[in-house]
Design a protein around this nucleic acid. Structure first.
Lengths: 227, 227, 227, 227
DNA sequence: CATGAATGAGTGTTCATTCAT
DNA sequence: AATGAATGAACACTCATTCAT
């Protein structure tokens, strides 16, 4: 069979991909536990048992999705992190990547966000390595910026990284739940959203007037220092 | 029978409570789907069938936990929101409540954070009302502070609320996963954590020097305005 | 509390009766297997566990109904059987009793007809004695009539009894299934029904002309004799 | 066994049949409610779960039996009904079919007669269509015979059909209960039984002498006409 | 008598996984 | 590589029955 026959346009590894794609759609719709192998097979339009040719079990399908898709995302973030731009630009890029990813592939985001925690393989001591890699990248970005004097150095970069990721994660989650953000949220909306999040992260919500000349007031705005 | 007899220390509704308590522990340990009714019964030291005397099904046990425990939490937040203190104090209190709740009852937090999405009752359009009530409370706190000039008014309070909640949520989540924060995180640590989060939220991560006299630099720190 | 208090109009054995009455209604509605003890208790407006004061178990409730109600019916039939009237009159009376019983208490009939077979106690070798007593009575009526020359003597009385009972049983069954015979079937209808059944049983469906002078035709109308 | 390998004598749909056959046997023995899926699987010598490969649930097994076997029976009756023979011959054939069916497959009869009522599908308004089809066929046979003058035209054919069916049904039922008619009832017995029932149905139980010249007596034998 | 909480065995159904073809 | 029939362990839920009060 040299050329692909018309009736069999996809061969080998292609099938694997179509299974993963189908699985993402079904997982996003029904969740990991709510999904049956037969659902995936039907969605991928392949035979029931064939799934087991490509994957050891249901768990491995989820793992593959998380690993492979997440890896793509991490690669993007890594490129941004290594870019010699100002920290603000980096954070803006990362926020934009995450939010636009959600906009374009809400199912992927849903699975990544909701199921990554469930997977046996990703649980356990030492945190799921994969996820922690994102934290590490963001932490590094922040630490380097602190070293360059671009960011306040007295704050724990790891905590700040968690806060930054958490902000974006929760914004996406909120949208996932609203079941299809009704019209009105176009690409521009998400860019604006990204700018707002980064603005908030860098400048804070506190009124600027307070800051200008006054670090000595007793109570408000956490005056002299957090810790 | 003045004091409760040893053989029958608990009566009626007490059993219901002990089932809920046991369920929280088991759900936290194994997750909703991984938990068998028999696990709950054993943990609560009651007969299998009695669970069904108090709850229609497994789902209803989870719902009851979410509803009842969450309600307690919301009540606390509401009191804080209505307090006539400075917004900074309010946010600090809320952060402290959440973080110390996690410290004292990590299982509760785990179940609340992880299982709230699973519940049928909490799914569906309009977001789970219960959860959105927290968002509403925080949003209100921020808006009132904006009106009083305590916070930057040009930022969307709803998004800011999401960011604030998301920060705390993710910090807790991170800890839940680390399966028992290795020693070193005592009560004081959590207080410090709360202060850091609120500091970050109010003052931002950006270096103060930047702000003081310089809103005119082109790129950095989102100078002239984010939105 | 010497005399019955107004709030407790029924005492002792009365409760037993109300349980049986309730049970008949529920059995008729849901069938024996589909009925829970709690259904009966609720219908009888008594406490759950009280049912077990009066009856050993669910089975015994059904048995009591069958035994007691059926006994009443049998007594009626026995009186008719012992009456020194013409067989036709006897059969007419019995048909009328059965059909009017159904008309007035369709639930009773339903339970008697449908559940009497299910009961463990009524199954097994030797047929359920109780039911066979009805067969015996009818058989006796027919045999006595045969002896008196009122009925064809060459036919097996036992089979004829089965046919007679089966006719009535099936007519009632058909009505039970039609779920509430739509208007139009009043008392008169049932009297007419009884007459038709007895007419059919005694005179047969065959055209009278055939019979009058012709027992010699080869095929039709089973010529000279059945056996 | 020349064809079909010994290790795999049955394929695909054959298994379905063997499940139905096994189910009939077990239902007949223990009744629908008393039968466990595992009983059926064991009797059919297949794996537990395979039952659910072919049937949605227990109910559907019963439905399939009733539908498929009953259909076969109805087809037979329909052929008889369409035959251009004398009504007596038709009724004799039908009676013979029913009684010999019982003789050869008492389990089938038992299930058909006793469980047809239980089935969800056969309940509800308008009577179970399937059963009513038998009534319709018999009614048609009688009406056509009435039109041809072979039967008394003044009697309601529908009621007569019910009586005819009920007679046979009850005779079979009686035998089912006696748990294996003790020896003595051979094929010939059932032929005789069929003849007796039809004789009774056509000629009635009333003494011929009565009829011959006397339709004018007041009471007995419903003289001039019942209705 | 009366109550209803407590018990736990029983079973229908699901579905991941294996395997013969 | 592909198919889908076959397998059976696992589990939620029901409900008759008991029992302490």
């Amino acid at each position: 069979m040299p050329e692909a026959t018309p009736t069999r346009p996809r061969q080998g590894a292609d099938k694997r991909e179509s299974i993963l794609d189908a699985a993402i759609r079904v997982f996003a719709d029904k969740g990991f536990h709510g999904t049956r192998i037969s659902d995936i097979a039907r969605e991928a339009e392949i035979a029931y048992g064939l799934v087991y040719h490509y994957f050891k079990n249901k768990e491995e399908i989820l793992d593959s999705i998380l690993l492979e898709r997440w890896r793509l995302f991490l690669d993007t973030v890594r490129v941004i992190a290594d870019d010699p731009r100002h920290v603000e630009q980096k954070l803006l890029s990362i926020a934009a990547v995450i939010l636009s990813a959600y906009r374009q592939r809400p199912e992927w985001t849903k699975v990544l966000v909701f199921e990554i925690q469930r997977s046996e393989r990703f649980a356990g001591k030492g945190r799921m390595q994969v996820v922690s890699e994102l934290y590490d990248l963001i932490t590094r970005i922040l630490q380097e910026a602190q070293a360059r004097g671009e960011l306040r150095a007295e704050l724990d970069a790891e905590i700040a990284a968690t806060v930054f990721i958490g902000s974006l994660d929760t914004i996406v989650t909120a949208r996932v739940f609203e079941i299809g953000r009704p019209a009105g949220e176009d690409a521009a909306t998400y860019v604006r959203l990204a700018r707002t999040v980064v603005d908030l992260f860098l400048n804070g919500m506190g009124e600027r007037g307070d800051r200008a000349g006054a670090g000595d007031e007793a109570g408000p705005v956490l005056g002299a220092g957090g810790a």
